[in-house]
Simulated scan of single mutants.
Amino acid sequence: MKLFFRKTGEGQPILILHGVFGSSDNWFSISKMIAENGYAVYALDARNHGQSPRSEEFSYELMADDLNEFIEDNHLEKPVIIGHSMGGKTVTHFAMKYPNKFSKLVIVDIAPKFYPSHHGHIIQGLNSIDLANLKNRNEAETQLAKFVSNVGERQFLLKNIYRTEDGKFDWRINLPVLSREIYQIGGDFTDVHEVLQPVLFLRGGESGYIYDEDIPAIKKIFPNATIETIEGAGHWVQAEKPTEFVQSILNFV
């Protein structure tokens, strides 16, 4: 699959993979901050997200293959790859399947373990929005607020609504497929291979996604992993502490 991407800057290639319900658009500011230090930053849209193609097929193995295809199509040599949440799991699958295609990894606030599905309220809320009869974004937010109480989370999710050329509203995400396959987002790793390249795990100090007891599982796959905590940040580390986030990446790279 040919993924949509946004490129910022010139220099050593750094790839960014977003989380579920996200897109490359969410990473514009971070990409610019990194690129200003002499890097070519490629922020990608995963399949069924943003402006990348839609597909009835959705799995981490496929998304790892999509990433490999992107690297080959763009003739990128040993890029650094950053993945947040779902993007971090995609990167982990990619690293085990294509161990010679990258130089370093940054995995943001996700561990190589099973996470019970916790997006049910989001799926319900998004599906409750009647785009065909939607008059404006305020109506969409009012409806979504019945399911998602956090204002910032609602604003993030509603970035997936856009106006088409004929003035109607549509989704940037493939909502039917994500609704059907949401259980896969938290999936475990059944075929584990050791990855020897340097890997930085960045976790939010106030997040509940990576605990100290997860470190042995991380080290089993990534024996050369470093785990760094950004205090005062939750799961959205890059949005809540952007300066600290970028500095950690620059120090590691």
Rank of each mutant, 00 (worst) to 15 (best):
L17Q: 05
L17Y: 04
L17I: 11
L17V: 11
L17A: 08
H18I: 07
G19A: 02
G19D: 03
G19H: 00
V20S: 08
V20Q: 04
V20W: 03
F21T: 05
F21R: 02
F21G: 02
F21Q: 03
F21A: 01
F21L: 07
F21N: 00
F21V: 09
F21M: 04
G22F: 03
G22Q: 00
G22L: 01
G22E: 03
S23F: 00
S24N: 06
S24T: 08
S24A: 12
S24C: 12
S24W: 05
D25E: 13
N26T: 06
N26I: 06
W27R: 01
W27I: 03
F28P: 12
F28L: 15
F28K: 15
S29A: 15
S29T: 14
S29Q: 15
S29H: 14
S29V: 15
I30G: 02
I30M: 06
S31I: 09
S31C: 10
S31N: 05
S31M: 06
S31A: 11
K32M: 12
K32A: 15
M33C: 14
I34F: 05
I34H: 04
I34M: 07
A35E: 06
E36T: 13
E36K: 14
E36P: 11
E36C: 13
E36R: 13
E36H: 11
N37T: 12
N37R: 13
N37L: 11
N37G: 09
N37E: 13
G38Q: 06
G38C: 09
G38D: 06
G38M: 12
Y39C: 07
Y39M: 09
Y39A: 05
A40S: 10
A40E: 08
V41M: 06
V41A: 09
Y42F: 12
Y42W: 06
Y42H: 09
Y42V: 10
Y42G: 06
Y42Q: 04
Y42L: 10
A43Q: 07
A43F: 10
L44N: 00
L44Q: 03
L44H: 02
L44W: 02
L44C: 05
D45H: 07
D45P: 04
A46G: 12
A46R: 10
A46L: 13
A46W: 07
R47V: 07
N48H: 06
N48F: 05
N48D: 04
N48L: 09
H49C: 04
H49A: 05
H49K: 02
G50F: 00
G50E: 00
G50V: 02
G50L: 00
Q51Y: 14
Q51S: 14
Q51W: 15
Q51E: 14
S52L: 03
S52H: 02
S52I: 02
S52W: 02
S52A: 08
P53T: 07
P53H: 09
P53D: 03
R54T: 13
R54I: 12
R54V: 13
S55I: 11
S55E: 11
S55C: 10
S55N: 12
